[in-house]
């Protein structure tokens, strides 16, 4: 029995050490969302697609590793990263102070402003006063949620959704008057589509760094410094060799990398 315990302890020791020794990053598991068009969405055939997905594939390829995509609901994204369900998050996640307490980020891979949308003509002049009493939908656990709660929390009724798609459904159903989200996601994921034709952007571009951070980055566990470096290098590589531009042009007709 004693011998068995020794062997068992040895096995556990070895098992615990194998991943540490094999930190070659031959495969990188990426957490993605899948309900945030055009950045990530599920195609009719069930395959994941979108800007984030293509960027994820391109970056891991630039590292010379294999990519495994893991779909995860948005509000469990960071906890699942810390629970090692995957090694990095590429899901349009903005780099913010609050998140940096828990995880590290690569350099940004794109940056676009946030904006409100509402039914055409329903908000003729945008001001804090005009928003009073309105119901505004937002995706839970996003920078937009944080901004809305901090800045308009006392003036508007906030409805929080698990995904952007659900928020669109309720805007069309008339349960919310306005939505706040990333401007590109709103325009490509909703306004340009049939169901979004009666809606329009209202108010200014929102990109205050206090809430909207430095753009979207790749989230990595704090201890995986090497992976963070690999991602930073990979971003530079695909920016330089034109792969980034090819992917960008596939989805957008403007520069999403920002300044």
């Amino acid at each position: 029995m004693k011998k068995f315990m020794v062997v068992l302890a040895l096995c556990m020791f070895l098992a615990a050490n194998v991943p540490a020794m094999a930190k070659e990053w031959t495969t990188v598991r990426i957490g993605v969302e899948g309900a945030y068009p055009p950045f990530s969405y599920v195609q009719p055939d069930g395959e994941l697609a979108g800007f984030d997905i293509d960027i994820a594939k391109a970056l891991v390829e630039a590292m010379g590793a294999e990519v495994v995509l893991v779909a995860q609901d948005w509000d469990g994204m960071i906890p699942a990263l810390m629970a090692k369900k995957y090694d990095a998050i590429i899901a349009s996640m903005s780099i913010t102070e609050e998140r940096l307490k828990k995880v590290n980020f690569s350099k940004k891979y794109y940056r676009t402003p946030a904006k409100f949308i509402a039914k055409k003509g329903s908000v003729p002049t945008f001001s804090k006063e005009a928003l009073k009493g309105k119901t505004v939908g937002v995706q839970r656990a996003t920078i937009h949620d944080q901004y809305l709660t901090d800045v308009y929390g006392k003036d508007v009724e906030i409805k929080r959704y698990g995904s952007q798609d659900e928020a669109y459904l309720d805007l069309v159903a008339g349960r919310v008057d306005m939505l706040l989200a990333d401007s590109v996601a709103l325009s490509d994921g909703f306004l340009k589509k049939e169901e979004g034709k009666d809606y329009e952007f209202v108010g200014p571009d929102l990109n205050d760094r206090k809430w909207f951070g430095d753009g979207a980055g790749i989230a990595i566990r704090k201890q995986d410094k090497d992976l963070e470096e690999l991602f930073n290098k990979a971003i530079e590589t695909i920016r330089a060799n034109g792969v980034y531009k090819t992917i960008q042009d596939k989805y957008f007709d403007f520069d999403v990398y920002g300044d």
């Binding site: 469990g76 960071i78 906890p79 609050e98 307490k101 839970r140 656990a141 949620d145 929080r160």
Partner: peptide
């Protein structure tokens, strides 16, 4: 709980 979790990432 979901609001608190999403604000502080402390599930």
């Amino acid at each position: 709980a979901r609001i608190i979790n999403s604000r502080f990432y402390s599930p």
